[in-house]
Design a protein around this nucleic acid. Sequence first.
DNA 1: CTTGTTTGCACAATCGATGGTGCAAGAACT
DNA 2: AGTTCTTGCACCATCGATTGTGCAAACAAG
Lengths: 352, 352
Amino acid sequence: MANSGKKKATIYDLSVLSGSSPSTVSAVLNGTWQKRRIKESTAELIRSLAETHQYTANRQARGLRSSRSGLIGLLLPIHDNRYFSSMAQTFEAHVRSKGQCPIVVSASRDPEEERKTAETLISYSIDELFICGATDPDGVHEVCEAAGLKHINIDLPGTKVPSVISDNYEGGRMLTEAIVRHFQPTTPLAPDELYLFGGRNDHASRERIRGFRAVKRELLGQDPDECIQPTGYAPNNARLAFEAFYEKHGRLPRGLFVNSSINFEGLLRFMAGHPHENFADLVVGCYDYDPFASFLPFPVIMIRQDVEGMITKAFEVIEEARPQPRIHLIQPELVQPRTALTGPLDALKDIE
Amino acid sequence: MANSGKKKATIYDLSVLSGSSPSTVSAVLNGTWQKRRIKESTAELIRSLAETHQYTANRQARGLRSSRSGLIGLLLPIHDNRYFSSMAQTFEAHVRSKGQCPIVVSASRDPEEERKTAETLISYSIDELFICGATDPDGVHEVCEAAGLKHINIDLPGTKVPSVISDNYEGGRMLTEAIVRHFQPTTPLAPDELYLFGGRNDHASRERIRGFRAVKRELLGQDPDECIQPTGYAPNNARLAFEAFYEKHGRLPRGLFVNSSINFEGLLRFMAGHPHENFADLVVGCYDYDPFASFLPFPVIMIRQDVEGMITKAFEVIEEARPQPRIHLIQPELVQPRTALTGPLDALKDIE
DNA sequence: CTTGTTTGCACAATCGATGGTGCAAGAACT
DNA sequence: AGTTCTTGCACCATCGATTGTGCAAACAAG
C-alpha cells in the first residue's frame, strides 16, 4: 500500500505540493473556484494532486467552519421491524441522492431517550432531522427548536412542526371492513367476535381504533368496549392479552385486528404455546405489512403503509420556507392474503 | 421557549459568564478538570452554568481537535431484512452502552458503494468501523487501512483483519439434516428431491452449500450438481428460478433449502403466482430466522444466526491490541417450525 | 507613459474544543 | 525572612476547511 499508515492528506499538504495557498486548494476542491477566479490550469493541477493523494475533505473541519455537516438524521423507535427498517432503507436512498449522508438512530420509544438522542445528533451539527414514530414528538421539537434545527415528524404527529403520517383512520376502516367482509358470505361476525389487540395511547392507535369502531358500528350494528385491547407494543404483553382472552373464553375471537406486526409477533407466541389449536376459522387483519405474515395458514389481511410516499412527502415539506404545523395524510394500501409485494430492495441491483 | 432561536452555548459563552478561561470550562465539562487542579467550587459553578444554558459540546470541534468523533460505524448490505436490522438493533445497543454514537449505513452489496461509503464515514472521523456482510471486505479494508481506521468484518469474512461470522458450514449441515430427518419417518427423500436455492458466490453461501452437499452425501448417498441453484439474493431472481423448476418438473422439490429470508421472499412470490397449488408435502429450510416465516402452512425449519454473539465477539476482538486476521466462528441455532423466539426488542421497556 | 480594470491568487480570521506550558499567589519549610 | 512547593488557573497554538478582503501583476484605455 502506497500510503499505508500515513495520515490523510489535507489542503495544506496539497497547498505545499501545488505551490498554491490553502484557500486556493480549498476553493478548487469544493467547487467555488470559478467564483474566486482561479485559473483553469491551476485548478487542474490541484485536482490531479488531490486525485493521486486520495484527498478527501475532513468533514468535521468543514462542518465546524460552516456549521453544517452534510448529515441528515432519522430518529426511529426501533430497527428490528419491517416497517421501520424499510423506512430506514427508503430514507437512506433519498438522502444519498441528495449527496448527503444518512444517520439512522433508534430511541426505543422512550421520550427521554428520544430527546437525548436528538441532542446527540445536534451536537454533530446534523442539517435536518426526521422524527419517525416518536412517542413525544413535541419534546424532541423543543430540543431541535433550541438548536435551530430543521425537523419534521413522520408516522406519529406532533403539534409544532409539520407531520407526514399514514391515514390511520381510513386504514383502520379499510382493514376492519375487509375482515368483516371476509366472513360475510358464509358466517357473518357478531360484534363481540371482532377484537382489536395492541397499540397504546398514541395518535396512530387512536385513529385506527376510531376507524375500527366506526366500521363495526356501521356494519355490525354494535361496538362493545371490551373488544378494544390496547396492550402496548411489546410482543409479550400482546401474548399475555391473547392468553387471558383464551383462558376466559376457551378460544380466540374469530376476527382479530392486530395493531402492528410487532403485536402480531405476540400472537405467534401465543400460537406457539397452543400447538394443537388449529385456528381454522380465524381471520387476522394486521396494521402493517410483512410478506411472510401474508402467507400464514389463516387469512391475514394487511395494511401496507406507503413508506416511499411518506418519505417523499416529508422531504418536500421540510424544504418549504415556512412549513405550517399541519398533518399530511398519506393513504395506506390494503393487502389481500397471500400477497408478496415488492419493496425497496427490489430497486437494488444484485451483482453476482 | 427561553432560548429559542439563539445559537447553542459554547465554552466561550460559559467562560465569560463564569469569569474563567475557556480552557478551564472545557476541562470542567469534559472531565479532565481534576488533572488540571481546578477548584471544586469553580467546577461546580461552571457545571451549573452549563446546566442552565443547556450546554452541549460541539462534537465537530472536539472531533477536529482530537481526531476522534465518538461515532462508531456499521456498514450493512441493506436495512430491510430481519437479520440485518436485528444486527443494527444489537449493534446500536452495544455502542450506546459504551457512551458512543452508532451510525448505521447500507451499501447495497455493491463493492464500489461499499468503498465510497467507508470513505464518507472516514471523512467524519469515525472511530471504528464494523463491516457487515460486505461483498468486498478487503476492498473496504484498503480504504480503512489508508486512513488508519480500526475495523472488523462480520457475517462475511475478509483476509486482512479479523472476521466474526456464523459457522455456515455447521449451520448448513444442521439445516440440511433437519430437512432430511423431517421426511424420514414416512416418506424419505431421494437425492434429487432436495434442492438448494439462493445465495451467490460468497463465503457464506459456499460454506452452506458445502454443508448441504456433505449431509446429502452422508444421508442420501448422492449429491447431484443440479440441486444447487445459486440465484443471487434478489427475490425476483429466486422467484424466476422456482418458476423455471416448476415449469420443467410440474412441481417444486419436496425439500427446499433456501439460502436466506430474502430468497425466501422469492419463494413467496412464486407461491402467490400459483394460488391453487397446496404445497402439502413441502418442507422448507431457510438459512435465516423470521418469526412469521416459522408459522407458514408448510413446515419451515430455520437457522437463527447468533447476532448478539457475533456483535459481542466483534467488540471483543476489535479492542485487542494486535488482532490477527483470523476467522471467529459463531454457532447458529436450529429453529423448529412454529417457533416464536424473542429478539432484541424484548430487551426494551414498553411504556404505557 | 499614466491611470483605471481585470485577473489570479495569498492572507488571515474564524468555527469550538483541547492540551501543553507558564506563571502568580499562597502554603510550607529552613 | 527567604526559598521551595503546591495550587489554581490563564494563555495560546492547534485540528482542517471556509471565506471576506487585499493586493500585485497583467492588461486596457486615454
